[in-house]
Design a protein around this nucleic acid. Structure first.
Lengths: 225, 225
DNA sequence: ACAAAAGTGTTTTTTTTACACCCATGA
DNA sequence: TCATGGGTGTAAAAAAAACACTTTTGT
């Protein structure tokens, strides 16, 4: 019998060669002073809008990121998830009926940071990559929980198809191994890792090598769709 | 900016020793004649109701099943998912605004059929266990898709904890193997299966044996929480 | 010459698969 | 005594893990 608002929230993880995993956060003003809070990009979906399309539209509108593969991973429907004061403050500024319930659908993506340059717009006053281990613990709504849930989910579905998004078109096996180590959060054995990669027919060695490195240059590989 | 209806739909799989996997369907009248259709149990969630609580309440109200472990597995948000004529007919009878969008959250459970005796009520005129391979292909809304999605999900998460719901408190290893074979839809090797089970410390052999069977009686096992 | 990362095989251990016969019971 | 499902072990194969040294480049 009840009508409610449905939103999507996007956990966009960004990868920068040889660095830490980052997450795309937006900054939102919570009142007329310039107090702000961080959140993952998300908003209400439109009337007749498909969820996935909505997620893409919203991500685009807040951060200008487009053409991103998004995967639904969970729904967050606690009736009190928008009740905290900090969240009500924000809702009062942007929504007609801030007390209405909002259920949200979580979407996840993994991207190469160099491929996407977030530019804030709409109610986002800023959009930036933040190291996963320095994410504020007081994100908007239940966004800290949503991120945790996304990371848990990620480990269960990680595969070469997903990881291929994170690679430049030519990459070294060390870069690839580094991605796995970061995403799985564990060290891998170089020789065993390469043995496994060599079984994946889609990953092919080119004749090119790294240039200008102060060590033996690595062969470059490509991921072949 | 849009308000919409949120529902839950429950895929309840029922297991009956040595038999086929069944699913709990309800029958709904679609008009004043006695035309009906089948559906999985589901309905709109309440205003301030938690999703999981709502799912339990609705399942109880339609089929009288209670105390069931339900696991959220996906969201179905196609804006047109309630637009077919058969579905609009039903919605017109039971909802004030049948054209309003309904997004639904899918919940899954696996139960022992003997433990639960479905009794239809509310808008369900009947509630019955139906063999998975004789589910009508024209269930309400997108329920056929929801079931497919649930079965796919089930194979990925199957473990002894989940299966323990399907067992009587004392069971034989053949019963257990049978459940796995049905859920995984593949034959398993008896000796290898038992080897694996023996590693699971929660599954313990009792001193009791089957009685009154026309073959060597099997030892009974228990699942120890 | 040194530092830095690349590249490369073999052995051991663990896990998984395949496979066949005798046993206890009720009819 | 027959039909039925219960119960058991071993060998082979496959997969995963452990492990160390040489090479190529820039500085």
């Amino acid at each position: 019998m009840s009508l409610l608002n449905l939103s999507v929230d996007c956990v966009i993880l960004g990868f920068d060669d040889d660095q830490k995993l980052k997450i795309l956060l937006i900054k939102k003003l919570v009142n007329k002073n310039k107090d702000h809070q961080y959140a993952i990009p998300g908003d209400l979906i439109g009337d007749k809008e498909d969820l996935l399309c909505g997620a893409k539209r919203i991500l685009m509108s807040l951060t200008s990121l487009k053409e991103i593969y998004l995967k639904q991973f969970s729904v967050f429907g606690d009736p009190k998830r928008t009740n905290q004061k900090k969240d009500q403050d924000w809702l009062k500024m942007y929504r007609k009926n801030p007390k209405e319930r909002v259920v949200t659908v979580g979407y996840l993506s993994l991207v190469r940071m160099e491929d996407y340059n977030p530019v804030a717009s709409s109610f986002a006053s800023d959009a930036e990559w933040v190291s996963l281990n320095s994410v504020p613990s007081n994100l908007a709504f239940d966004h800290n929980d949503i991120i945790k849930s996304a990371l848990r989910y990620l480990k269960t579905v990680l595969d070469h198809k997903i990881v291929s998004n994170l690679l430049p078109s030519k990459f070294t096996l060390s870069q690839l191994q580094n991605i796995y180590e970061i995403l799985l959060d564990e060290k891998l054995d170089k020789r065993n890792f390469r043995k496994n990669i060599s079984k994946i027919s889609k990953i092919k060695r080119t004749k090119e090598k790294q240039e200008g490195v102060a060590h033996k240059p690595a062969y470059l590989y490509t991921y072949d769709n």
